[in-house]
Structure formats: C-alpha cells, structure tokens
C-alpha cells in the first residue's frame, strides 16, 4: 500500500513526471535554439520560469467565473498525471492497468485540450474566446487520425491493453517495424495535440494575442504550462510504448536508459518539426488532417488487417 503510494507520488509517478517534463521543455527549447544557430536558454530555465510564474500576482478578470477559472489548470494537470500512471514506462506493466487502458489513456490526454478550450470560454475575453473555438476546431481535426494511428498496432495484438500489446510485439521479433506509417501519423498528430508549430493555430501570438490563455496570470498559467509540458512527456511515452515496444529486459538501468532515449528521440522529432515549418491556417490544418492523415492511418489499419489475416492466422 505504502509502496504503491510512493510509486504514484514519487518515482514513476507525479514527481518524476514533473522533473522529466522540465527536462523535456529544456531539451525542446535547446534543440529549437541550436537549429536557429543560437545559444538558447540555460539549463535551469524551465524551473526559473515555473517558480517566477508561481510567485507572480494572480489577477482574475471581473467577468470570469472564479471557481471554474481557478479549477481548470488543476484539472488539466491531474488528468495528464492520471494518464501517465497507466502508461508502461520501462517495465511491461504500468503502475495501474486494466484491460483497455490504451483507450483510457487516449481519452485522459484529450481532457487537457478540453480544459484549454473551457479556459478561454470562461475568461470572457474576445481573444480567449477565439482561441478556445480554435482549440476545439483543431481537436476535431487531429483526434481521429491520432486514435486510428495509435489503435492500428493493437489490431495485430488483438488487445487494447498496453501490457498485452508490448508482450505481443516482444514475442514477434521485428514485427513492430510494420507500424512505421502509423508512427509517423502519430508524431504529426501529437504535434497538433501539443499545439506546437505548425499546428499552433489556437495560440497564434501574431494573430490572437495568446489564445485561450490570454487572461491567465501567474500561478494558474504556470500550472497550464506544466500541464502542457507533462502532456508532451505523456504523449511521447504513449507513442514509445505502442510503436517502439523494445528494451524491456531484466536489467532496470538498461530499461530506464532505453526509455529515456525513446522519449528524447520523440521530443527531438517534435522540436525539429516545430523548427522547420511555419504555421498553417485553420482550413489547411483541417484538410491536411482529414484528406491526408486519416487515409494514411486507414492504410496502416488495412495493412495490419491483411497481415493478421494472411500471415499470423
């Protein structure tokens, strides 16, 4: 009981996730800076930003709904943390699991996006309102390809549980390479989920000030930023667990290092995409996701069904 509580609160749980999210943000910004041929922020930058925001004055707009305005950042943080507890990291089992936890994790990672939208809605500010509508529009474009891409590997494994999917691909040798197309789709849609360039339409600072977070100050904004960073780590862990199911040996240290390398690799990909592209328009994003990403994910599902019917039997 105490061990489980420690696991949830400290090591593969909340504290570890917060530390890892800070390191992830630093790595992302440093890669971004290096690709622009500049030095970039010092190593303590995410920590300094977080502490500074926590210590700033908290202003709640007069027209905003006080209770919901204050509660939303914590809802975003806690839903990401819950999702993270169900993702297997360096062991085949996660801290908590049940049959069908992949679906559960995907839905828990959708809740922060909804809170971003509600945050804009309850701020009662024009820019925040436009931002919140854009968040929802974007949600409808990337969510379906993401779900299809993440659920494609589970067709071969005939299970919606992380542990069984990982066990299946470990037993199947290099069968996980089949899912390469879905991996690419998942990375692109994850970029949309995290609202980074080229899919940063909801908080396009050159158009609509700061999107749905326009009215958020100090500590509440710090928690939203933290939720965003934790979402990066949780999303990367999800993609790593489903698409890169290797390195679950008997040595703890090796497994841990392999897990870190996987997450770093995915954050690196996200940072590179962020650097080399410019922002899309809303209609371009919608047509790109529905005309290209969704059919590509369908092709992957088709390939997996054929392999399952013809080869695996």
């Amino acid at each position: 009981m105490i061990l489980l509580l420690l696991k949830i609160l400290v090591f593969p749980g909340i504290l570890f996730l917060v530390v890892l999210s800070m390191i992830g943000e630093y790595f992302d910004r440093k890669v971004y800076a290096k690709m622009q041929n500049r030095m970039g922020p010092p190593w303590f930058q995410p920590v300094a930003d977080f502490i500074k925001l926590l210590a700033k004055e908290l202003i709640i707009p007069k027209n905003a709904d006080r209770k919901i305005f204050k509660a939303l950042p914590l809802v975003a943080c806690s839903s990401v943390i819950i999702a993270y507890l169900y993702i297997p990291l360096w062991r085949k089992e996660s801290i908590m699991s049940f049959n069908g936890d992949i679906i559960f994790v995907l839905y828990m990672l959708t809740i922060p996006t909804l809170t971003y939208s509600l945050a804009g809605w309850y701020s009662r500010s024009q820019y925040a309102l436009i931002g919140s509508m854009r968040v929802l529009t974007q949600l409808f474009s990337y969510e379906v390809p993401l779900f299809m891409a993440v659920l494609a590997p589970t067709i071969l494994a005939s299970s919606w549980s992380f542990t069984e999917v990982i066990n299946f691909y470990n037993a199947g040798g290099s069968l996980w390479l089949v899912n390469f197309i879905a991996f690419a789709v998942a990375i692109v849609t994850l970029q949309g989920k995290l609202e980074k360039v080229p899919f940063d339409i909801p908080e396009a600072e050159t158009e609509i000030v700061a999107g749905s977070f326009t009215e958020y100050t100090g500590p509440l904004f710090a928690y939203f930023r933290l939720a965003m960073n934790m979402q990066t780590i949780a999303g990367a862990s999800l993609v790593a667990a489903v698409f890169l199911p290797f390195g679950y040996g008997s040595f703890f240290i090796f497994n841990f290092i392999i897990y870190i390398i996987k997450v770093t690799f995915i954050i690196f990909l996200l940072a590179v995409i962020r650097t080399i592209f410019a922002r899309l328009r809303t209609d371009q994003m919608l047509s790109f996701c529905w005309k290209y990403l969704a059919p590509i994910a369908l092709v992957q599902i088709l390939i997996n069904v054929i392999i399952k019917a013809a080869v695996l039997k």
């Binding site: 970039g40 820019y127 958020y216």
Partner: peptide, 16 residues
C-alpha cells in the same frame, strides 16, 4: 541577438 540566453521571451499578452 538571442535574448533567450537571459531567459527572455516575447509574450503576446500583458498578463504573462
């Protein structure tokens, strides 16, 4: 000029 060396970034809103 890279002002991010000093931790500085441009925000769109005065609230941040």
């Amino acid at each position: 000029y890279d002002i991010e060396r000093f931790g500085s970034i441009l925000r769109g809103t005065p609230r941040h």
